[in-house]
């Protein structure tokens, strides 16, 4: 038990050392920003100093919790919906060439729809509740997940599939025992891309009309020239996006550890 704790501590230390340079750059940029705004006397509504932003964050903390929770919920549900839909579509495309010809063009088209144009329409159709935000998150996340999964399924080693078929496996078994695990590395990279966009999707949805959420909160702050608060919310959104990304990464390592191993092929 202590060994595991020690190993975890060592791991955390390693992470810190690795993150060191990035943290340094960030700190230096913050320092310059602080100095410039103070020395030049830039007004806080135009560009607040980092210290002012931190204060604004602390001040906003009681309200931030509620809005953050709402945005996170929309993001989570939308992401889950996208994952489910992408799984179904990618499996269909993989199993049937008719489905591929019918659905692949739609897949690309789904990505060409400008979300900014769609968001107000969704608000008109579905009101100011969570549903339109969830739909936007799902739309944003669906494409990278579906494309990466379909690609991963297509690239599964045909020899491995032949081997399992020679053992008497049917289509279903080939799909679940060979193709899906083979597609895991590709699927995970698509899921990470989707995760890093997902929060922004929810915020855009909230922007065009919402009763709560970080997008709404930021819009209010912006309209009342509380620029420091806008920056504080931006920081929260960034942190949530990074959190989503890391969550997928951690989950991926747990569920599909082989996807993180570089396998060197033995043989021709």
């Amino acid at each position: 038990m202590t060994g595991r704790v020690r190993a975890a501590a060592a791991g955390a230390r390693r992470q810190l050392t690795r993150a060191g340079p990035a943290v340094l750059v960030l700190a230096a940029a913050g320092g310059v920003w602080e100095l410039v705004t103070r020395l030049a006397g830039v007004p806080a509504w135009l560009l607040p100093a980092p210290s002012v932003i931190v204060l604004a964050f602390v001040e906003a903390l009681p309200q931030l919790g509620r809005h953050t929770a709402s945005t996170m919920l929309e993001t989570g549900i939308g992401y889950g919906a996208a994952l489910t839909a992408a799984f179904v579509i990618a499996a269909l495309i993989d199993q049937s060439s008719l489905a591929r010809r019918a659905l692949a063009p739609l897949l690309v088209t789904s990505q060409t729809i400008p979300i900014f144009a769609l968001a107000p329409l969704l608000a008109i159709w579905f009101g100011f509740g969570m549903l339109p935000k969830i739909i936007i998150v799902a739309l944003v996340c669906f494409f990278p997940i579906a494309v990466s999964l379909a690609g991963g399924l297509r690239n599964a080693d045909p020899d491995m599939q032949a081997l399992v078929r020679s053992m008497g496996a049917g289509r279903r078994q080939v799909f679940f025992k060979v193709k899906l695990p083979s597609a895991a590395p590709s699927l995970l990279s698509g899921m990470k891309i989707a995760a890093s966009y997902s929060v922004i999707g929810a915020v855009i949805g909230e922007w065009v009309g919402a009763s709560q959420g970080l997008g709404l909160y930021m819009l209010r702050a912006s309209n009342s020239f509380q620029t420091a608060r806008v920056f504080a919310v931006i920081a929260v959104i960034a942190a949530l996006s990074v959190g989503m990304f890391l969550a997928v990464d951690v989950l991926g390592r747990r569920v599909a550890p082989w996807a993180y191993v570089r396998t060197e092929e033995v043989g021709p």
Partner: peptide, 17 residues
């Protein structure tokens, strides 16, 4: 019901997971 043949292809094709 099983076929009488066990096939081992050129590459080991061990499933990496």
């Amino acid at each position: 019901g099983a076929s009488g043949v066990a096939y081992m292809p050129q590459r080991d094709l061990l499933l990496p997971w």
